[in-house]
Amino acid sequence: MRHREQTDATIQDRTDGVRRLPGSPALGDDHALRGLDFASQDCLGLSTHPEIVAAAGDILRRFGVRSVCAAPEAGDPGLAVALERRIADFLQMEAALLCPTGRAAARTVIRGLVRPADHVVIDAAIRGGLREDAEEATDNIQPFRHLDADHCRDRLQAIRAQDARNGILVVTESLSPLDSGTPDLAALRAACDAHGATLLVDVAQDLGCLGEDGRGHLGLQDMLGRADLVTGSFSRSFASNGGFVAARTRAVTACLRVGEAALQALSPIQIAVILKAFAVIDAAEGRERRARLMRNVLNLRTALRDRAMSVCGEPCTSVSVEIGFGERARRVAHHLSDLGLLADLAALEDTGRLRLHVTAGHSDAEIARAASCVAAALDLARADTSAPSRRPRLRAAA
């Protein structure tokens, strides 16, 4: 079941809502950097978890400091094998393959499987690695309307009417960073089955942090083990960089393993951190952290709506607010800085949406203050853009 939007004010405010940023000058300094951090993506707060820090320390003492390197040089190979097995079991897939980044995971699976004559049918909202690598692999790219499974099915039907032989890869995200929307994964699965297509689902945005069991929308929609391919990254929930490809058949990961993915590996410290994060996420503590995270998400969405702002998509770790485009968007970004709120501004100019990354560690006071800052910044931006220009008008020469 998806989360209902409701508030829970049973926990009293514990702070004044302002936190000093790490590494900033002393509080008495006139140039001290202070602000609310709604820009980082350590959504479960595992980067400072004592057991995870201890696991990293143990591996550091065993293997020393190692950068990303060739897989045979990465230390104990048993660690990587254990993590790949953990990922596959977590997603109910047959096998998994580690990659140095989520971007590398996208490159590995697209370039490793898609031939120039094949087709890629991709959600129109997907940008970044998946889209770029698909465009490099084949000219046969067919976008379908964002989250529209019916349009995807129409695309597949049209392709099969012209080409009954070559492969088709359907690419979607379990949770869209554009608008916090999620596709009907079962409908996409059915469309792929009907037209002989392969379904790839990227779970970078929700794995570990959404759903009672941390399986994200694959779990919420009863789709574990039903996608042909799953790609993702560890940076949002697992306290480490890194990425992976999981497959329903071991032959796929065996094929990919001889390509680019074999050239680099995660360091032993990264692997140990991710393994310990899996243990926390899959235990009662993980459920409690996800419950706190979702409570904060729902309360922030309600607080923003109470201030007459439009909130996009479904409840998830990133709360997207409609701000507007052009000069208003630039003014909002400026005023947020003055008000001391750190937010994700990366897509503001293109989408007109401000993203606030919520964590399990945010307090009630911080949630309320963040909503107030966004509302104040938007009001100031509206006033700026509606005020008459004070520039002197040029007069035509007599």
Rank of each mutant, 00 (worst) to 15 (best):
G75I: 07
N241L: 11
L79S: 06
L178R: 11
D228E: 12
P25W: 01
R353G: 09
D344Y: 04
P143K: 01
I126C: 07
S320I: 02
R287Q: 15
L97C: 10
L83Q: 07
V297W: 00
V114F: 08
G128F: 06
S233G: 15
A56N: 01
I271E: 06
A70C: 11
A39V: 08
D148F: 05
R4I: 06
I274H: 03
L98T: 08
A191G: 11
S372G: 13
V358R: 00
F244H: 04
L266Y: 07
F325P: 00
E314K: 02
S24P: 08
Q205C: 10
D89H: 11
P25H: 02
R153E: 15
H362T: 04
D184N: 15
L356N: 07
L130N: 05
E349H: 12
I52Q: 04
G232S: 06
T198H: 08
G242V: 08
S386Q: 14
G313M: 05
L98Q: 09
A376F: 00
A262T: 06
H31R: 14
D384I: 07
N241V: 10
R295G: 09
A370I: 06
R85C: 10
R34G: 01
D350K: 14
T253P: 11
R215T: 12
T15K: 02
L304P: 04
L336A: 08
D154Y: 00
A308V: 02
F38Q: 02
L199Q: 09
L263S: 13
E173L: 15
D58K: 12
T182G: 06
G324F: 05
R369K: 15
L224V: 05
E73P: 00
D384S: 11
A194D: 15
L266C: 12
H362N: 14
M294E: 07
D282P: 00
A261N: 09
M309Y: 00
A190W: 05
L199R: 06
H357E: 13
F144R: 01
L263Q: 15
A124R: 10
A197Y: 04
G181C: 13
R2Q: 10
I59F: 00
L345F: 12
T172N: 09
V109K: 03
S240R: 01
V18Q: 06
D30R: 10
